[in-house]
Design a protein around this nucleic acid. Structure first.
Lengths: 144, 144
DNA sequence: ATTAATTCGGATATTTTTGTCCGATTAAAT
DNA sequence: ATTTAATCGGACAAAAATATCCGAATTAAT
C-alpha cells in the first residue's frame, strides 16, 4: 500500500511527535532504534519530511528532529504520505490507465475509487497527534 | 496499490473473459494490444494465471488463452490478485510491522484494517464476469 | 514430414526502490 | 580555537520489480 520509505516515515514522525510533546528533540540514531529501521535510509526519509517543513531539523551537537508545539495537532497522515510518496496513491487508476475518469472509466473505476476515497478521507482526518496519543497510553507500538 | 504485473493481469483477464464469452480464444499479441501492455511481460503474467488454473492456455498453432464457460462467473478479482501479487496486500500491517494484531497493534491498525477489509470485500465480491459486462456495453475501457 | 503459429520457461537486461557510505556543514561545549 | 556530535546531500551499492530475448515444446494445417 505505502512504500517502505513511507512506512518508516510515518513510524518515525509518530515517535518524534511523542518525544516532542515532552519538549525533547531526538536524533537519527534514537529514531532508527525506536522504530527498528535502517539508519541511513531513515535519514533520507526524515530529510524529505524536513524539506517539506513537516518536521524541523537542526544540525550540530545536540541537534536532531522535532515538531514545533503549534504544528503538533495539524499534521495529518495525508501530509506525511504526500511528502514521501506523493499523491499518486490517491489519484492513480486502480488498473494503471493513464486516463481514467467518469467519461471513460476502467471497469473497476467506481468500486476502486470508493476504497481510494476512504483511504484519502481517513488519512486527511487522522492527525499524527491522534496516533501519538495511543502510543503514549501504551496501547500501541512502533516496532516488531 | 496493485503491482504493475497485477494491473496488467486484471486488464488481461477481463479482455480474455470478454472474448471467451463469444467462444473465442485469444493469443498473447492480441491481449497485449487490447490492453496496451508490454508483450513479453504480459506473457509472464498470463503464465502465472494459467499455472494457478485461473485461465486455460493452449500451445501450438491456433493456441491461446481462454476461460472455460463454467468458470466465467466464479473468478473473482480476489483470485486474480492473489495469483499474481499474493495475499500480502490483504494481510500486511499498514506501517510494515512484522507482527501487528489487536494484542499489539500499530497506531494505525484499526483505521487501516477498515480500509484493507473494504478492499478485500470488494475484491471478493467482484467477479471478472461483472467487470466484463460493462466493457461489453461499451461504458468502460481497458486502455488509455 | 514440414512448416507455421503459438505458449513455456529459463536467462538476461533495465529501471526503480531500498539501502549504505562518506565528506561537507553546522552548532554546542570545552 | 578545537573538539565533538549532529544533519545534509551527493555518490554509490544491493535488491526487487519490470521488461526483454530466445530456444524448446506443442499443436494444427499443409
Amino acid at each position: 500500500m505505502f512504500s517502505k520509505a513511507c512506512e518508516y516515515g510515518i513510524r518515525a514522525i509518530i515517535y518524534i511527535s511523542q518525544k516532542s510533546q515532552d519538549g525533547h528533540r531526538v536524533n537519527l540514531k534514537s529514531v532508527a532504534k525506536a522504530i527498528d529501521s535502517p539508519e541511513a535510509f531513515t535519514a533520507k526519509v526524515l530529510q524529505s519530511l524536513a524539506n517539506n517543513n513537516i518536521i524541523s531539523s537542526s544540525k550540530g551537537s545536540s541537534g536532531g528532529y522535532d515538531i514545533p508545539e503549534n504544528r503538533q495537532s495539524n499534521i495529518t497522515l495525508f501530509d506525511v504520505v504526500n511528502a514521501i510518496d506523493g499523491d499518486t496513491i490517491y489519484d492513480k487508476c486502480g488498473l494503471g490507465l493513464q486516463q481514467c475518469n467518469p467519461q471513460k472509466p476502467c471497469p473497476m473505476h467506481y468500486k476502486f475509487i470508493a476504497i481510494r476515497d476512504n483511504l484519502k478521507q481517513m488519512s486527511q482526518q487522522t492527525t499524527i497527534h491522534d496516533l501519538t496519543k495511543e502510543l503514549l497510553q501504551g496501547t500501541t507500538c512502533l516496532k516488531r
